[in-house]
Every structure is written in C-alpha cells, then in structure tokens.
Amino acid sequence: MATAKSAKFDIKAYRGFKAITLLCLFVLYAPLIVVTIYSFNASASLTNWEGVSFRWYVDVFTGPESGKFKTAALNSFIIAIAAATMATTLATLAATGMVRGGKFKLRSASFGLISLPLMVPEIVTAVATLIFFNAIGFDRGIMTILLAHTAFCVPFAYLPIAARMQGIEDSYEQAAMDLYANKRQAFTKILMPLMMPGIISGFILAFIVSLDDFIITNFVKGAGVETLPTAIFGSVKQGIKPNIMAISTMLLGLSVVMVTISYFVSKADNTK
C-alpha cells in the first residue's frame, strides 16, 4: 500500500512544476507589491525612497485631484451596484428558465445570446454600443454606461448562478410542491435560499467586472462623467504618480476583501 501510494505521488509530480508555480505567483504579485510599497513613499519622485508616509493617501482625499476622484469613485460604485443588481436579477431569472425550464428549441440560441458579451471582443462591443447610442440619438451620460454595463455583466452573473442551480437537485422543490406549495412559493422559499451562494458570487463577479471596465466605459461615457478607471487612465496617461499608486492600493484592498468574502461564502457552503 505504502509503495503504491508513493508511486502514485511520483507519477503526479513533475520536476520543476512547483518552481514554475512559484515563479508564476511572483510575476503576478511583484508589480502589485511594488506599487503598494511605493504608495507609501514619502517622496514625490518615483525613483527615490524617502521613508514611509501616508501623504499620498491623504492627497487622494484632500489633494487638488480629490474632487475628481471622489466623483469618479461615487459614479463607479453607483454604476457597479446598479448594473450588478440588474444583471444578477436578469441572470437568476434566465438561469431558472434555462436550468429548470425543460428542454426547448431556442435553448442553445438563448445560451449563445446570454454569453454573447463574452464571445465578442470587448473593443467590438464598445464600438457597437457607441454606434448604437449614436444612431438612436441617445444622449451619452451615466445612463449609457449603466445600460452597457448591465448587458455586459449578464453572462458573468449567469455562469456561477447556472452552475450552482445545476448542482441543486429539484427534489427539494418537488417535495415542497407535494406539500401544496405553489410554484412561486417553491421558487422564492426553497430554490432562492439554496441559490444564495451562487447568486452572491454572480453579483460579486458582475460588480467587479463593472467596477473594472475601462474600454466600454471609455467609449460610451458622456460629458463630465468619469468612472474610476477612466479617471485613473486620464491621470496615468501623463505618467504614474504616487497618488495613483495609493488609489491602486486601496482598490487592490477592496478587491481582496470582495474576493475573500466570495471565497468564504462558497467555502461555508461546501462544508455544509
């Protein structure tokens, strides 16, 4: 038995794979760690280190560009929350229709439509959306960003939700209906609570995708409407400044928090 086990381990392990994995993690984290470190640099110069300081964090909230970044952050969060909420709602309903709606003719066409934003390169979606809003004379502003983000986020919300729903046997709902629950009750009282982990990951995924989006936003945003990525892009185009590094570090922190939440939500669910 012991020999068999060690043989199996031998077969699984390839020399150098661990080193490559560590290299991979290093490449992934090195730039972010460097930026995080430099965001605490007291110096205004990018190359000299003059000790630890929070001045760039203070600068983000009180400096000359703070107004711009505050508005941009607010816009980003409003858009991300609204778009993720709408996309998650659409995706939950659609997933129910797709996974619990029996087989039907347009099923693969529907799946194709839902995943269309994933299949079309983002720059193409951006161009198409710009042309569309322009052709129908829709004034560009925060609304155009919101609509574009909602559509773009649907597949990101849909995939974890549908995957989760496929993992839930419908015997629970059937049992409830046997006990005289109607379909609406079975849906809201049984399926939805069971679906929560999937819905939460779907929402978080959609939220981050919206918060992160630059290309589409850049094409459809209107006058004076900036989101964080477009505001950051406007700033970094003229060179990387320490206050941008501070913002990056905060966004990194926020992302880590969000992903951690989603990790523990799904983990809590697995252990059940």
């Binding site: 709602t89 659409l90 995706a91 309903l93 659609a94 129910t96 229709g97 797709m98 996974v99 619990r100 709606g101 029996g102 087989k103 039907f104 529907s110 439509l113 839902i114 269309l116 934003p117 909602t150 559509a151 649907v154 849909y158 729903m165 496929q166 993992g167 419908d170 709902e173 059937q174 379909k183 079975a186 849906f187």
Partner: peptide
C-alpha cells in the same frame, strides 16, 4: 441537470435577459 419545474414560466423568466441582450 435540466429539469422542467418552471416550464410554464420559462418564456417570462427568459424574456428580460433576451430583451436586454
């Protein structure tokens, strides 16, 4: 894993996503 629990409501469930996309 497809079942047909909500088969009757299928069109209405999918309509919002169809329209939006």
């Amino acid at each position: 894993a497809v079942t047909d629990t909500y088969k009757d409501a299928r069109t209405w469930l999918l309509l919002p996503a169809w329209l939006t996309l």
